[in-house]
Amino acid sequence: MAAHQITFTINGGQETALVTSHTTLLSLIREQLGLTGTKNGCATGECGACTVLLNGEPVNACMVLAVEVDGAEIVTVEGLAQDGQLDVLQQMFVEHTGTQCGFCTPGVLIMARALLDRNPNPSDDEIKDALRGNLCRCTGYVRIIEAVKAAAKAGG
């Protein structure tokens, strides 16, 4: 199995890793880098629990090969807080009970971050549409949508 050396930025820091041709970005993040905030819910691109930002765009990390991120910039849930200050989305998820079991939460937060980055004032329907690929079985999405709205209002 050929190993490839890749260099990339993750949560603001540069990393180099040796990966195989079939290592997924999810496996790189969770198993090689030990960043376990990103979750593995299906490994088939259907649940959104492993959503990360790849060059600013949300992707299912289980559907991206690690070799593809050579030279790229990645943000995971661990990278949302800056200088000890929570991202406004994280603050609003705490305040509005946007989390219950918490397993989908990292992926939802990243997807919501991507939404607010491209659309700082989304409508309810735009929020729902943005999150349709992030499955949650606990909250019924109600508080998640409220929290995203509150974050947008707070300057997102």
Partner: peptide, 21 residues
Amino acid sequence: VRRVDALEKTTGEALFADDLQ
């Protein structure tokens, strides 16, 4: 009262079984 587990669940620090090393 705010959920006692909310903070760690939004930072990615909350540990689930597959996160244990």
